[in-house]
């Protein structure tokens, strides 16, 4: 590099820095807030439903178990648009459930709760399957031992199954959160693209791209990649630590 170049560099940078500052000053960050809010609420619901569904299928008879398992897994293998279609069929404004909700003051379709509904539907199978796999690693005799000691089913879940399946539960939670945040097809179907209300990051990617704003699309892509990576690396690091009762004494 020549000295001439060195001298000119700061002045050269000034301009793009200004451009970036002005760009982000006007940048609409609302999709980030919508996405985080939606994914947090949806994964909270999914964690509870997934654990309960996994616990119920674990104790079910074999044939019922297979049937429930298929139904609970379907949203994972169906295209998200199909899931969205079914959600409209079930929760649409003119369906009985839709009318019931409207009667109680909730116009679900094309509102923010609809993003939660869509994210919950597609993320649920991930939680359910991960947790069920973790539950199945626990010796059934141990659950039976707990029963003969007088443990209620709720206590078995709380004191035996969940502590032993904790890594699986954590993994399922993170996977569901990431899946909820990446949800696009079903969300667009039932919640639409209302900026600041139902426009999530993936939807922002698509619509900024479609309107030719490649920079904005790129910013959203970078943000989504960053959050997803953080979640996956975070969970891997957490799982590598292991369970306290496998590693060390309580006394230490």
């Amino acid at each position: 590099m020549s000295p001439r170049c060195d001298l000119r560099l700061p002045r050269d940078l000034e301009e793009p820095m200004d451009t970036i500052a002005t760009y982000f000053a006007e940048f609409d960050f609302r999709p980030l807030a919508v996405s985080l809010k939606t994914s947090l609420v949806a994964s909270a619901i999914v964690v509870i439903l997934g654990i309960l569904a996994a616990f119920k299928t674990l104790g079910a008879h074999r044939r019922l178990k297979g049937w429930l398992d298929s139904v609970f897994t379907l949203p994972m293998v169906l295209p998200p648009t199909v899931v969205g279609y079914f959600l409209l069929v079930i929760f649409g404004n003119s369906t009985p459930i839709g009318r019931f909700l409207i009667g109680h003051g909730l116009r679900l379709i094309f509102s923010w709760p609809a993003t939660v509904l869509a994210a919950t539907a597609v993320a649920f199978p991930l939680m359910y399957r991960t947790v069920r796999a973790a539950f199945e690693q626990v010796d059934p005799d141990m659950l039976d031992a707990a029963r003969t000691l007088g443990f209620s089913e709720a206590k078995i879940l709380r004191r035996v199954l969940l502590p032993l399946s904790w890594p699986g539960v954590m993994a399922g939670t993170v996977l569901s959160f990431a899946r909820a945040m990446g949800e696009f097809g079903a969300t667009l179907f039932v919640a639409g693209n209302l900026p600041g209300v139902t426009q999530t990051m993936p939807i922002a990617v698509y619509f900024s791209w479609a309107s030719g704003d490649l920079v904005t699309a790129g910013v959203w892509v970078a943000l989504i990649v960053a959050i997803s990576c953080a979640a996956v690396f975070g969970i891997n690091g957490y799982m590598a630590r292991g369970n306290r009762f496998r590693e060390a004494d309580a006394a230490r």
Binding site: M142, D144, T148, R159, V160, P163, F245, R246, A250
Partner: peptide, 22 residues
């Protein structure tokens, strides 16, 4: 009666101690 009501505290071959409890 349910296993809980009978509360027989059956001792299993592999003991089935709860690993997450002291």
């Amino acid at each position: 009666l349910s296993p809980q009501e009978r509360k027989s505290a059956l001792l299993f071959q592999n003991y089935q101690l709860f690993p997450s409890m002291t």
